[in-house]
Design a protein around this nucleic acid. Sequence first.
DNA 1: ATACGTGCAAAGTATTTGCAAACGG
DNA 2: CCGTTTGCAAATACTTTGCACGTAT
Lengths: 152, 152
Amino acid sequence: MTMRITIILVMSWAEHARTELRRSGARSGGAREAVIAYLGEQHCCVSAQELHDGLRAEGRTVGIASVYRALDQLAELHLVHRVDLDRGLTRYEPAQPDGEHHHHLVCDGCGKVETFDDPVLERALSRVAGSRDYALAAHDVVLRGACADCRS
Amino acid sequence: MTMRITIILVMSWAEHARTELRRSGARSGGAREAVIAYLGEQHCCVSAQELHDGLRAEGRTVGIASVYRALDQLAELHLVHRVDLDRGLTRYEPAQPDGEHHHHLVCDGCGKVETFDDPVLERALSRVAGSRDYALAAHDVVLRGACADCRS
DNA sequence: ATACGTGCAAAGTATTTGCAAACGG
DNA sequence: CCGTTTGCAAATACTTTGCACGTAT
């Protein structure tokens, strides 16, 4: 008789981020920990200001400079993606360790942000990068238009 | 006997922009004219500062505020596209009247910017927008990576 | 003539940096 | 202890706005 035991190791993004930070030689501190905890609960991108305000609303007061420093550090380790949806405002979202990601669809009317992913799109992007001999590190795709509600 | 005369009207982007501005009810002035002339000579996107410096180098001194105002107005009429390649810095490029456009490939190493366009990519984007019932107004695609030179 | 265009300076917004104090390993 | 992290304030970078004056139509 054979028994097969499968252990599924589920590590949340926040845990993953803490692990990678430790591995990179960083110490831990309250401000960055708060940023990680907050980001881990987001399903889509947030701006530094939103993050700052969100933490304040939870009672954790963190200097805005520390928010930016934490985000920089996380981006450096590829733990967050920077997303530019509005000009002049950077948004950040947790990056999945397995490279899984999505893109954004923004409604010009109501500002609503939806996400999507599309294998054909991804293949087209890889093909373009390959044909120009670029080692692709990141890619951003933003679609803008009027959603069904805003058109009716 | 029938004679068919085909007149191919080639209008430069700058001429087209002037025409559209006039049609929109705008008057003409030195600052905006300098911006249009400068943009018309660009093959790819430039920032407001680059444009301002470029004009100054040519001896045409234009207030930076007028540069921004001209760019806003041109963007409003869809005569220029705004392009975000770096966070916190908007670039502008002439928009072809026929909707023809390209996307950008940025080298993380040397900062070089190349352009590309790809029909498969465009179709994939249209399909995504359609499936979500969005009337697509614009789309931005930026690929980032290391170019062949920077990898060797 | 009258609104639009322009330049300057001031204000605004997002982000970064200098520095001294607090803190973690 | 010693180097990292943090908060504050000041600095920076880019862009917008207020206002007085010039200019095109």
